[in-house]
Amino acid sequence: MSTPATPLLQVRDIRKTYGARIGCTDVNFDLYPGEVIGIVGESGSGKSTLLNCLAGHLAPDAGEILFNTRADGLKDTLKMSEPERRMLGRTDWAFVHQNARDGLRMGVSAGGNVGERLMAVGARHYGNIREQAIDWLDRVEIAEDRVDDRPGAFSGGMQQRLQIARNLVTGPRLVFMDEPTGGLDVSVQARLLDLLRGLVREMGLSAIIVTHDLAVVRLLADRLMVMKSGHVVEAGLTDQVLDDPQHGYTQLLVSSVLQV
């Protein structure tokens, strides 16, 4: 906690274009262990593009993404072999999709969904896998007697909590989230945010959260990056940026929220 630690993630000059159109460009930042960074900006500003580049789902055109691996220290994830990167995706990294259906196996029980990552890294004791699955369902407030139900039988909020359990069960160090509360009712959002905040603190997780919703970053993010047209136009501590925005676009963003 107190070590003036090496960043967990160092992002350097990331650029991704779609033909002539800019997805995101010139993105630079460091993420420290236990830190949560929020990425906000209007629709089409490049948030998802950036997140998918960071998580290895998209190949950027340029830049470096250095991750502090357990075994070998800082490594450029873009230069890793595919097996190595996929292994990170199953162990130290987690990805929470906006649409739970994209992040869950709908044909598999809740327990199987949570257990999959354990089995993917070699767990072969049914009783232990099930016990851990039930423990994680409990941590995301899903009752034990739902462990054999398929996600289709769950509400949207429950599906999202299941997706979170499925991702966190292997104790990742870095979680990517794309609009994790999008599409949910306001009261359901609030409960999910509470839960996420608790888990992030308890597990000392580092996270990068993409959202439209300034209330989400206010609650979860230590620092904030504001994106517009593929560029990061402002970055800083969340409270500072929200309370004293410097860039004209951020000022607009903040004021438009206040009107809601």
């Binding site: 595919e82 097996p83 996929r86 199953r90 196996r105 598999v108 029980s109 327990g111 199987g112 257990g115 999959e116 990552r117 089995m119 993917a120 890294v121 070699g122 072969r124 049914y126 896998i129 099930r130 462990v147 054999d148």
Partner: peptide, 18 residues
Amino acid sequence: GLEEYGLMHVKLYEDIAR
């Protein structure tokens, strides 16, 4: 190709659960 066979055990897990 990458010898990622965890999914096969998910199928067996589902069997036992059911």
